[in-house]
């Protein structure tokens, strides 16, 4: 089986400071990988390098494209990379307002990616938008409301619908549950887990919340100071951490 994503020696420097360095891994279809670490550990830098939002200083991010097989997305042309970003890739931002158009209705937000890839039938676009509102548990009567009228949890679910409507194969998530109430988080995680299973999505989730990765991720990568210090099966890394930093991280979680 060909990995969906092959990451080889990714490095990003901010002057003399290391953003992230020496990061390599393979992600196979259907796998969900978590990246954990404290603020400043380089996990968001890494995610942005992988998703093409930042240009890494070194390394390759090879994606198994539908048409041409494995291609290095770092060196591919910008139009191709942006096309990937609208079709096979999705990016869920921590703050929904970074990933939504706040002045456009919920239906328009979901429909944008469809229209971007050439859908030109209003009725069909709207039907799919309504279908997706249902899948993320938003009442379809809200299809013409703007996200400004939505709660934080609803905005985040709308962002997910907007991203998944084109049936992407790889989803990047940056702290998808950050800033939400605990009860809202649980519902969102449950929803994400269901969608990941149902659609066979591969995902890379950056978070500092170990409960999130325990629930969603098959695999885990632990980062500190721009380096990957430990990687492995999620439950193994959390239950039997090998590296000093991971042990500290795991033992720092408050038990409830």
């Amino acid at each position: 089986m060909t990995p969906l994503l092959q990451v080889k020696g990714i490095q990003k420097l901010y002057g003399a400071r290391i953003g992230c360095t020496g990061v390599s891994f393979d992600l196979y279809p259907g796998e969900v990988m978590g990246i954990v670490g404290e603020s400043g550990s380089g996990k968001s830098t890494l995610l942005n390098c992988l998703a093409g939002h930042l240009v890494p200083d070194g390394g390759q991010v090879i994606f198994d494209t539908r048409s041409d097989g494995p291609v290095d997305t770092v060196t591919m042309s910008e139009p191709e990379r942006r096309m990937l970003g609208r079709t096979d890739w999705a990016f869920v931002h921590q703050h929904a307002r970074d990933g939504l158009r706040m002045s456009v209705s919920a239906g328009g937000n979901i429909g944008e990616r469809l229209m971007a890839v050439g859908d030109r039938h209003y009725g069909q676009i709207r039907d799919r938008a309504i279908d997706w509102l249902g899948r993320v548990e938003i009442d379809d009567a809200r299809v013409d409301d703007r996200p400004t009228a939505f709660s934080g949890g609803m905005q985040q679910r709308l962002q997910i619908a907007r991203n998944l409507v084109t049936g992407p194969r790889l989803v990047f998530m940056d702290e998808p549950t950050g800033g939400l109430d605990v009860s809202v988080q649980a519902r969102l995680l449950d929803l994400l887990r269901g969608l990941v299973r149902e659609m066979g999505l591969s995902a890379i989730i950056v978070t500092h919340d170990l409960a999130v990765v325990r629930l969603l991720a098959d695999r885990l990568m632990v980062m500190k100071d721009g380096h990957v210090v430990e990687a492995g099966l999620t439950d193994q890394v959390l239950d039997d951490p090998q590296h000093a930093y991971t042990q500290l991280l795991v033992s720092s979680v408050l038990q409830v």
Binding site: S105, G108, G111, E112, M115, R120
Partner: peptide
Amino acid sequence: GLMHVKLYEDIS
């Protein structure tokens, strides 16, 4: 695609 979003909003 965004141009059609504007027209979509009109119709909706």
